[in-house]
């Protein structure tokens, strides 16, 4: 089973390697201007130095800190509001127009106004990330909570469970697959907004470095940091998929 999965990765990885080799050749052969696109081997050298010297750690930690704190806050707010709206009709009627107004705004566009209020420090960046994270989770939680089987809720009631206990032990676990699907979407958004707010504020982290290197014509460095960013995204997804599988271990597998 595991072996089959590993074998399944082979064609895709081989194709990727082929593309990188092709790029290397195209640059070496002069088909692409070196100033714009250095050969992958040159990027690799910079990348290796960044990784071995430990230079990568500071910016990486700065960006991941924004992602995790913002993701955490946004998740809690999204789950809480989504549950309230899914459970109490009054909360839904009160909040639904506001949510529908806010939801379609690309949250990247909220960074400039937030800078007016909160400056360019971590507070602003974390707020931006949290805002972006909240909505997909809120909407998914709302749907999940509404979809909880009536029979399950009545089972809790006939056994004398109060609302608070039923929400925590019946409704939330039952809605968990939906909530996690929303969180998966939001995790990608969190990284996007974290990097973007770093670029817009010109302060620390991977986002700022990519912009800064480009402006300083340190093109190889720019690409090296970009690769690091890609790896961060990959790692976050893998981490989430692992956590999700653990949380939903009870789901019927055929």
């Amino acid at each position: 089973m595991r072996r089959e999965r590993l074998l399944g990765l082979v064609p895709g990885l081989a194709f990727l390697a082929l593309l990188i080799a092709g790029l290397e050749w195209a640059v070496q052969a002069g088909l692409i201007r070196r100033a714009l696109m250095p050969p992958p081997s040159a990027i690799w050298e910079v990348l290796r130095d960044l990784l071995t010297s430990g230079e990568v750690i500071g910016p990486l930690v700065a960006t991941l800190r924004l992602v995790f704190i913002g993701f955490g806050i946004g998740s809690v707010v999204g789950i809480a509001l989504g549950t309230a709206m899914g459970w109490w009709g009054a909360a839904y009627r009160l909040l639904e127009p506001l949510v529908e107004m806010m939801r379609p705004i690309p949250k990247a566009a909220l960074v400039p106004p937030l800078m007016l209020f909160l400056g360019i420090g971590d507070t602003m960046k974390i707020t931006s990330v949290s805002l972006a994270v909240t909505f997909p989770i809120l909407v998914n939680t709302l749907q999940g909570v509404r979809g909880v089987d009536r029979v399950l809720l009545d089972s809790a009631r006939t056994h004398g469970w109060g609302t608070a206990r039923a929400l925590w032990y019946v409704v939330l676990p039952a809605a968990l697959p939906f909530i996690l699907a929303g969180m998966r979407t939001s995790l990608g958004l969190a990284l996007i907004i974290a990097v973007l707010s770093e670029m817009l504020t010109g302060q620390g982290g991977l986002g700022f470095l990519i912009l800064d290197m480009q402006r300083s014509f340190l093109i190889r460095q720019m690409y090296a940091w970009l690769v690091i960013l890609a790896l961060v995204g990959l790692a976050l997804n893998a981490l989430f998929a692992w956590a999700e599988a653990r949380a939903l271990h009870w789901q019927q597998r055929h």
Partner: peptide
């Protein structure tokens, strides 16, 4: 509907 009244998790 016993299948729906038990908590699957």
């Amino acid at each position: 509907q016993y299948g729906r009244s038990l908590l699957p998790w």
